[in-house]
Each structure stands twice: as C-alpha cells, then as structure tokens.
Design a protein around this nucleic acid. Sequence first.
DNA 1: GCCGTTTTCGGCCCGACTGTTTTCAGTCG
Length: 577
Amino acid sequence: MTLRNRDIATLFKRLADLLEIEGENPFRIQAYRNAAETIEGLAAPVTELVAAETDLTQYSHIGKDIAEKIEGVVATGRLAALDEVAQRVPPELADLMGVKGLGPKGVKALHDHFHIRSVDELEQLAREGRVRELSGFGAKKEAALLEGIHELHARQYQRTPLAEAEAQAEPLRAWLAAVDGVECIEIAGSYRRRRETVGDIDIVVACADGAAVMERLVRYDGIERVASRGTTRSSVILADGLQVDVRAVPTESFGAALMYFTGSKQHNVALRQRAIQRDLKLNEYGLFQGDDAVAGADEPGIYRQLGLVWIPPELRGDRGEVEAAERDHLPALIEADAIRGDLHAHTTWSDGRDTLEDMARGARARGYEYLAITDHGPRVRIANGLSPERLQTQAEAIAELDASLDGITLLKGCEVDILADGTLDLPDEVLATLDIVVCSIHYNLRQSRQEQTDRVLRAMENPYFMIWGHPTAREVNRREPIDIDLERCLEEAAEHGIAIEVSAQPKRLDLNDAGARLAREKGCRLVINTDAHSVGNLDLVRHGVDQARRAWAEAEDIINTRGLVELRKALRTPPGG
DNA sequence: GCCGTTTTCGGCCCGACTGTTTTCAGTCG
C-alpha cells in the first residue's frame, strides 16, 4: 500500500500526542502538529515530492529537521522519533486523548496511577467508580469521561458530510434567529469554509442579551443533551450526535467573533501573528490597540486594519491566502450563478429517476442554456446501461425533444466506462456521434497504482475522451480514492484538452479541493457537474461550486460557465469534429 | 521545532467553561 500524505501526517500527530503526554516543550509539539497539517493539505503526494528531491522546507511549518524526518518516513515507512518515544510512552495512550475531557495531563495521571493503556480499560475503571480515587478527578469528571467514551464509540471519529450538516444546522439557525434583539446570526467553522465534512457546528450570534439566546437554545427540540452552558458560550449535542457550539457576542464584536470561529485555526494563528507584528491584539472581541478597539464589528474592517483585503472563508486555510490578500491578488472565486449548464445527467433511459423531458424542463427552469444527457454506457449493466442501438434510439428522442423545446439546448452524450484495460465500453464510431463524452471509472477500483494510472492514460489517448468524470471514484466517508498517479494523469489531460469533473454529488465531491487545485495548476480546465439522477439533483450544483472555490477556481477555469458556442470551443475537439 | 516588516535568538493565539481547587489547572475550540 502506498504511503499517503494522511498516513505520514498521522505519524507526526501521534508523535506530538506522545510527547505531550511526556510533558515535552509545548511549542515543539505544536511544531509537529503544524507540520502534520501542512502535509495533509499538500496536493501532491509527499512520496513523489521526495522522489523528485523537492526541497520540503519551502512548505510552511516544515524546517530542516522535519524535512529530514519526512524523508526518513518515505524511505523506511517508519518515523524513527516516534519509535523512540514509543519505548518510553505506550503508543496506545494517544488513543485515550480522543476521549473528550481527557487531555495529556489526565492521560499521564491515569497511566501513572492505574497503568491503564486503552479506552476499554478506562471505561471499566470508570464504571467501577475508581477513577475518582485519583486526586484531580471527581465523580462528575468520571461521569463526563464515560459520556466521552460513549460518544467516541457512537461517532467512530466520523465527521458529518456538509450537506447533512446543513440539514441539521439551518433549522437551528432559524430557531435562534427568532430571539428578540438578535442582530446577526451566522454559522461559522468549517461549515462556512465549505469543507466537505464538518466536525461540529459553530453558530455566532450578535445580540445584546446572550442569556436569552442560550435560554432558547436549550429549549430546541432536536437536542440530546446540553454539554456546557454559559451566558456567552454554550455547547449542545443534537440527537444524531452532532455537536453545536453557540457563541453570543455584542454587535461591535460580531465580525471578530465570526472570523475567530470560522477559522481555520491555522489562518487565525497567521492573522494573530500579523496583528502582533503591528502592535495590535486580535481576539474574538475585536482588533485592539492597547485597550482601544480599532475594528471588530465586521470582517472586512479587521482585514483592512491588518493590511489585507477580505479573504473569502473558502480560502482560509493558511495555503497562501494571506500573502495573496496582502498583494490584492486573491482569485475572483466562481459564484454559483455563473454555471450555465450541466454536462453530466442521467434519465430513465439508464438509472435516472426522471424522464428525458422532465430533466430537460428542469434544467430550463433553473435558467440553464444547455444540458448534456449522459446515461451510462453498456458496462454498467445494473444501471441499465445503453447499448449502441439504444443510444442511437435515445439520440433520436433527444433530437426530437430539443427541436420542440425553446430556451435550452440538449446535448447528446454518454457516461462511458473506462474498462480495466483502459479501453472504453463503446466503439469510436458510436462516440463520434455524440456531443459530450464523459469517461468514468466504476469498476476494478482495486487495481495497483501502476495499472490504474496506465488505464486512465490509455483511455485519454482516445480522441473522444472529453471529460474525466468523478476521477478518483472516492465517496465521502465511505470509499477511499483509487490509487493513481493523479498528477501524471492531470498533465496528460491538460495536454489533450480534457476537462476534469468536479462532481457536485455530496457523496462524491470528486475531485476534491486539493485535487481540483492541482488540476488547475497543471493547466486543466474544470467542469462542475451534478451527475444528476433526478430533476432535484440539478440543484446540488452549489456543492460543486463550493469545492471549486476551495480550489481557488475562477469562473474562467470552469468550462460550463461559458455559453454554448464558447463551451464547444473549450471541449476537446475529436477528429473531424 | 519553526520562524523572521523590532530576523538567527527568543518568541510561539487566547479566552470560556468545568470541576476541583479554596485561587486555579486542564481542556476545548
């Protein structure tokens, strides 16, 4: 199995956890955690960067020492420093830190006194009521730990997909907005940064009377329990286990609080350091010079005082956005209303729920100029994939409908399968009759990296390969991406003028933000498609726009922001086409 | 261990809440 960036990051996080339990210098620990964040956020595989002898210290939070440690990991598969610490501190203790309410000091105390090593042992100890024997631990703490263990098991470390989080959070936002005196209310956190999944929900409320907000919060119907409650800050757990933190601030602090709770943590740290350099102090109440607030009511004012233009939340990840904002070189991010058509949609001809006509009318009702009908090719039998004969019949139906419908153009297309050997599941003479050919992988997901890469590169040699559909076949929280040399494939795609799909399906979001950013850097055009299997699915496009924005994409990078004539020019041109 | 618009040493984000403490440490975000 290839060493993924996430695996390498995990080693450094674990090293940080164990050192923290040992009581090491907290800044050294933070340095390892910062480096882990950087590694996770890199678009290119670290293994390949090392193979190409890239200077890793060019990346933030990676210095000489950590660069060498990373090279060691790539060479040996092990982090020597971690192995060394593991001789003194049982590595399983890091898992105990996953229990809410238990930090490094608590883990060390429990281990020193009871010699426990696992969450299960802690659970047994707590059930027997023995944790309270330890000074610093009481009955309430013991109960809180049992609760924390329960939650750990229940949620299995899973983050909530953004679309699900929306369904939970928006009604609660509306519930709180009804409190008298609420001036502004926003959902912050990774939700506002539009990450594909969220760990919890952060709601920031501008209100003179915070107590009234908290009073209404705890009366919300969907609450499982109240984890903590104050007059300015409270936490509740919703019925499905999602945690919601609510923070009430005065109106003059709303921008600062919104910024603070939007994060990312790394972005906040960068801004606070910037404030310190200017003899200012930034906290969730405002930007202060001594005791005087110089900004705080709104975000643009704070950024301005720091010498920056306002940074859209999707860019706040300490990935170069502060430097870009300083030079006023931020991208003009794509907006949802810039999308003028969908190039990947299914109908009842294969596994869609709605008819060809319903889909066409639905797209027109959304204001689209065009819609590509791309039912499955024959390989996907379970989805009633189309044979060349049925595809021909469908083409006639599309042409007939297109002629009878004003205000939208229907494009004849197909979602062709990239077979295990890199051939496509329809012959070239059939593909030659189509306007749009989306090529996707649905089967043989477990091929080796070499096989998978060769497979896609071979497929791309086919002149009718126009769009690479959901390129890595990943599914959020459910299926890892296929093992493939993405960078190599994107270079090939750029060369042939193949557009890369950013699937807006919440379960796919494929390519993801880092992949889409890499695609742009390699010179590829992107296309935001819903892969709609119903009329309602067409509305999912905004989730794809979110991903593209996180990839720093502008409207110009996305081919389906163009009118039909320009779109055709932007697509790969097959021979004679 | 990283980093640099008071740079190669000396900082490194900071406030709220909880439980346990009898004045604050630990944890969280």
